[in-house]
């Protein structure tokens, strides 16, 4: 298929992770938000980890350059082409 799943996967983690870490950074001194999570700023730390995961996925997906594959011919139409 022409679209590598790692690209949307990377993007959604970049976005959600980014949103969470920014929010976590802004609210880092608001202790009452993080009372629930026992004083741990889960937004910032976990958001940052998700952001990193998204970045890795996105970069790997871009490098494979699946998205540049021509739509024609299809994998089953062209015999033994190396798989990605």
């Amino acid at each position: 298929m022409g679209l590598d799943i790692r690209i949307p996967l990377g993007l959604i983690f970049l976005l959600i992770g980014g949103l969470m870490s920014i929010y976590g950074f802004i609210t880092r001194h608001t202790a009452d938000i993080y009372e629930k999570s026992m004083g741990i700023n889960l937004n910032f730390t976990w958001g940052l980890l998700m952001f990193l995961f998204g970045a890795v996925m996105y970069i790997v997906g871009r490098r494979q350059k699946w998205q540049d594959d021509p739509v024609n011919p299809r994998p089953w139409e062209q015999g033994n082409r190396p798989r990605h």
Binding site: I16, G24, S37, L42
Partner: peptide, 14 residues
């Protein structure tokens, strides 16, 4: 709801 502060709660519900 018990452990997640707002923000990561959105992620949990997602």
């Amino acid at each position: 709801l018990h452990f997640f502060p707002t923000g990561i709660l959105g992620l949990g519900l997602t």
